[in-house]
Amino acid sequence: MSTTRWLIAGVGTAIIALAAVSIPADELANGLRGPTPLNQEPKAPKIWPTENKDVKRGRAYTSQPPTIPHTIEKYEITRNVNMCMYCHARVRNNEFGAPMVSATHYMDREFDFLAEISPRRYFCTQCHVPQAEVTAPVGNTFMDVDEIIAKERAASKAEPGEKPP
Rank of each mutant, 00 (worst) to 15 (best):
V129K: 15
H70V: 00
E27R: 14
A19D: 05
N80K: 15
D54P: 02
H88V: 01
D112P: 02
I47S: 10
L28G: 07
A19P: 01
T13G: 15
R33M: 05
K46N: 03
N30Q: 12
G34N: 02
E27Y: 14
I68Q: 00
C124E: 07
P42R: 00
I47G: 06
P66D: 04
P65D: 04
S22N: 07
P35H: 02
L28D: 05
A20C: 13
I117D: 02
E116T: 14
A132S: 13
P37E: 01
T104S: 14
W48C: 04
A103C: 04
T125H: 08
Q131T: 13
N94P: 00
R92T: 11
C124W: 05
I47W: 14
E110T: 15
F96P: 00
K56H: 14
K46H: 04
I23W: 01
R121L: 10
T78Y: 10
C124H: 08
K53L: 12
V91K: 11
V91N: 08
T78E: 08
L18A: 08
A17F: 06
Q40L: 10
N39F: 12
I15V: 11
E133Y: 09
A132H: 07
C124Y: 06
I72H: 03
A98T: 08
N82H: 09
Y75L: 10
R57T: 14
P130K: 01
N52R: 02
E76H: 15
R92Q: 06
Y61Q: 08
N52Y: 03
D108E: 08
E41T: 13
E95I: 10
G34R: 00
I23S: 00
R92I: 03
P66Q: 06
T62V: 04
L28Q: 14
I117V: 15
A132F: 05
F96Q: 04
Y61R: 07
A89E: 07
M85Q: 05
F123P: 02
V55T: 11
M100Q: 13
A17D: 01
I23Q: 01
K74D: 08
N52F: 03
A20I: 06
K56R: 15
N39V: 05
Y122I: 06
A89Q: 07
Y106E: 00
P119D: 05
K46V: 09
N82C: 09
V129M: 14
E41M: 10
I16W: 12
M85R: 03
D54K: 13
T104H: 11
V21A: 12
V21F: 11
I117K: 10
R109K: 15
N52K: 03
T62Q: 12
T71K: 08
H88D: 04
E51R: 06
I77P: 00
F123E: 11
I72R: 02
T13Y: 11
R79W: 15
T71R: 05
D108M: 08
N82D: 07
P49S: 00
P35V: 04
S118T: 00
C124I: 15
C87L: 00
T125F: 09
E116M: 12
